[in-house]
Structures are given as structure tokens and as C-alpha cells.
Design a protein around this nucleic acid. Structure first.
Lengths: 257, 257
DNA sequence: CCAAGACATTCTCAATATGAGAATAACTTG
DNA sequence: CAAGTTATTCTCATATTGAGAATGTCTTGG
């Protein structure tokens, strides 16, 4: 139960105040949501971008996003933008990333942007929406030049994604319904950008309670380049990984040279 | 260098667009910052609250905060609110927590609030500011009934603080310039709400590179209830703790019963 | 069909990190 | 001065992790 469902005291004085209250007395600020939607295609991390169809910065690529609507909640707006501009499934994991509000970030007026981070399994190429001339997946580490401060937002989203893989089972949101341990390892290697020890990764994933659960099935055939058929798993019910699956540290990587 | 310092192409079409652009075409939204300022007083975690001096919800306690000003950056607004309403030092650690924008969260109009989390060493009682009838430290775990959705914001801030102690040296921002290992342990025990093993904590803190560095000095006298004089340390230069200092897990706590 | 190479899965071993309990010694207060 | 507290260091058993390797199953190219 949230506060506004309780008996909030609204006496005469407060009623009078609300009646004469003029929202236009406050400095105008526009509020938008922007979405950093990530997926993995052909072993490379990709981010969804739209080509701006109108000024400012027309023709440049930007994160999908737009103004929030009256009566619309923030996560709702983020999901709408994602679906609207790209036709993406509304089931993708989505979480708030951060809010950007530097006074100079948009030349039109004061714009405060609440960014969201979304993870999705490999999806078909998106459809262009009304606001965008085009929408497409781009390599997340080598994107085209981005509009506004979206390069910074993307960088923050990538770092959040890398960190989240450590202590949550979110890597499974990049895979299909079922997956092999190797596919899961591929997600980690792609997002972190480092190769992992196959044997240790296997041991670790199976030892963390609730990370994955066996389906009892195996792949129909071995890998395209050989190897036995792998067991298939699905996401478990854990929301946090205990103990966490930590990235190799810098010192360890230096030692490996 | 940020994007707006670069050669952004502003052609005639874009200039024309900017000229005829009317910010008032967008639905009115007010943007505020709210600050969850935490400190430890007498071994208890406290949060800074102000008593609302005007409707709505006049008389209720709320997090310090207010509308952002034109041309003012978000972190800047958070620091200003903290200093303005309470006289707190602007040097306290402050970081963005999350943004709340449910359409029903304020009866006046659509209000989007960007919350900030601040840690400060024990400070004197604050002064009331212009917007607040009173400002005071309250126990963070048993606060008075809070206005709007501030109880939820406080809860999120507390969880963030607990998590941050694990992998960052932020506990040192709750202490003075120098501190003993026991004082540092006290911070962890207070924020996490669990007793820690003194010996293991001591070993851990000294083994994590860059967490603390010795000053070469010791306390003038032993603790108020006895014990030897303790060595004094200051915060080290690490920004992250490797390996992290993890909270006891639920299962471990259950086992200890 | 066969040999070579790829890959899933399981093990072994050494190095680290952690939880518990305890030993030592330096201070406090009554 | 005795008793109780606390800082600091150790010991030992248990987990966790990094590396390297062994095994057996498959795919691909002759």
C-alpha cells in the first residue's frame, strides 16, 4: 500500500492551496525516457539505435526514447518507447539506469532524461517508428556518433550490464528459453569482453543455487564445429547469485599475459 | 569533452526549428531532487528529515528537497538542497539513487523526483531552512510517518547504502578523518544491523589493498570501557574493494541461531 | 569410413578467502 | 589492584577459485 491510499489529511487550508496552485509558475522542464536496449547478435553485443527524423541533430543516431505522457508511469513510458519505435517484445527485462539533467544537454530547453536498461534475446531487425527515420541494431562498443549525451548514457548502461552479470542471473535474459552452459558462457564472454575458463565456468554455474535448472534434454546435434551434444538448461528461480560470479580482475588478466 | 563542445551541425533548418519551438507545448512536469542523507549518531543510523512547512501534507516529515532551478545541474541541486535546508557541509559524499515519477505521487501535479544518497560523518543538529518548519536527524529504521512516497525512497536509499559498503570504501565517509578499525567495524554493524567477528573484520580490512592506510598514530587512551589504545587509520585510495567485504548471508545467519 | 580437431563435462591440485574460536596483552573502572 | 573490555594476532577447518588436464562424443574433410 502506498501513501496516497492512506488517509491523507486534506483540510480546508490544503484544499484552498491546491485550488490556486498554478503549475506554470515553475520553470518549464521536459521529461523524457531513453532506453539502452542490448542484445547479442552473432557473438557481438549490440545496442538499439534510431536515426533522428527531426531536429535537433537530425540524421544522427540516438537511443530510442521520447517524452513521457500525462498519467503514464516511468517504466511504462520506457516499455512503450521500446515497443513503439522498434516493435520489440514488452517482455524484455527492463530496469532504471540513471537520470541525466545537465542544463546544456538539449538545445531546445531543459530536458531531464530518465534512462532505462533493457536486455533482450536476439531479435529480428526492428521496424522504424513514427519519430525515427530508421531503427537498427549497432555494435555497442563501436556505435556511430550519437546525439546529445547518449554516448555517456550508453557507456553507463554497458557498465551496469557488466556489473549485473556478476551478481544476478540476468545473462539468461540474453538467451532463448533453454540454453546450454556454453551459450551462457558466450553471453558472459561477449558482455565482459574476456574469455572464460570453460571448465571452471561450468562448475560455477551448476554450483550456484537457483541459477539454472536442468531440462533433462540435450541439443539435437553437437556444435557446428564438433563436440558432443550439450545438456539444455533453463533459468532458475534465483534473483541473486550467491556467491557471485566475478569478472577476472585486472591483475589476474595482467598475470595471464 | 562532452557532445555540446563539439562541432554540432546547426544548419538553417535546425535554427528555424529552434526559433519556433515552444516548450509550453509539452505537458507540464515539475522536477525535484530529494536527498536521503545518512549519518551515524550514537551507534544508530539516522536520516535527515524536514517538517513540511506548507501544503500539501503540511506538518509531515519529508526528505529534504525541492525544485531544480533553471541552469542548475542535478547534483548541484542536490547539494544546494542539502546545504540550504540544513547547513550541512557540501563535502559529504553524494550520489544519484533513483528517480520516482508515478503520476499519483504528488496531488499538485506531475512531479518527477530524482533522489540522491548522501553519507556524512556525525554532524551537529541542522538548522531549519526557509521551506521547512524544522529539520532534524531521525532514526533511519524507525522514522516518523513520511510524506508522499518518501518511505519507499528511504528504503531504497538504505538498501543502496548497505550494498555499497560491500564493494566500496564508503564506510569511511561515516567516520572522521582518522579512525580505528573498531570504529569502522561499528559503521558496518550499524548499517548492516548485524554483529561482525572482530578478528576476521580486522584481518579483512587490512588485507584489502587501498581500503585504509596507517597513520602511524594511536588513540590517546583506550576505549571508554577498557582495552588497549588502538591504531589510527585514514581512508586509502581504493575506489572499489577487491575482494569485496560481503554481508553475512541469510543462511549463515540462520546457522548461527 | 577414418583421422583430426572441437567441445561438453568432470577431475585434480594449489592458492586464496572466510568463519569460528581462542590466545595475548594493553587499558579501563570500581 | 582485580575484573572486565577491547585491539590485535593466530590457528584450523571449510569454501571458492584459477589452471591444466583427462575423457568421451560429435562434426568435418579427406
Amino acid at each position: 500500500m502506498s501513501w496516497f491510499e492512506k488517509d491523507v489529511v486534506v483540510d480546508e487550508k490544503e484544499s484552498a492551496f491546491l485550488a490556486e496552485y498554478d503549475p506554470r509558475d515553475y520553470p518549464p522542464v521536459a521529461v523524457t525516457v531513453d532506453v539502452v536496449a542490448l542484445t547479442i547478435r552473432a557473438g557481438v553485443l549490440h545496442v538499439l539505435l534510431v536515426e533522428r527524423g527531426r531536429p535537433p541533430q537530425q540524421g544522427r543516431w540516438a537511443l530510442p526514447g521520447g517524452f513521457i505522457r500525462p498519467g503514464e508511469d516511468l517504466p511504462e513510458a520506457a516499455r512503450r518507447e521500446l515497443a513503439e519505435e522498434t516493435g520489440l517484445s514488452p517482455r524484455a527485462h527492463i530496469e532504471q539506469l540513471a537520470t541525466y539533467g545537465s542544463p546544456e544537454r538539449d538545445p531546445r530547453m531543459r530536458v531531464v532524461s530518465i534512462s532505462y536498461l533493457a536486455f533482450a534475446p536476439d531479435l529480428p531487425d526492428p521496424e522504424a517508428g513514427s519519430d525515427a527515420a530508421a531503427a537498427a541494431w549497432h555494435p555497442a562498443l563501436r556505435p556511430p556518433e550519437l546525439a546529445f549525451d547518449h554516448a555517456r548514457i550508453l557507456a553507463d548502461g554497458l557498465e551496469r550490464a557488466r556489473a549485473k552479470l556478476e551478481y544476478t542471473p540476468l545473462a539468461t535474459t540474453f538467451t532463448g528459453e533453454t540454453f546450454t552452459i556454453s551459450e551462457l558462457r558466450g553471453v558472459y564472454e561477449t558482455v565482459w569482453g574476456v574469455p572464460l575458463h570453460a571448465g571452471n565456468f561450468h562448475r560455477k554455474v551448476l554450483s550456484v543455487p537457483g541459477f539454472v535448472e536442468a531440462t533433462g534434454h540435450s541439443t539435437i546435434s553437437g556444435g557446428s564445429r564438433g563436440g558432443p551434444r550439450a545438456k539444455l538448461y533453463r533459468a532458475g528461480d534465483a534473483r541473486l547469485l550467491h556467491p557471485a560470479l566475478l569478472r577476472p580482475t585486472e591483475t589476474e588478466q595482467e598475470e595471464a599475459r
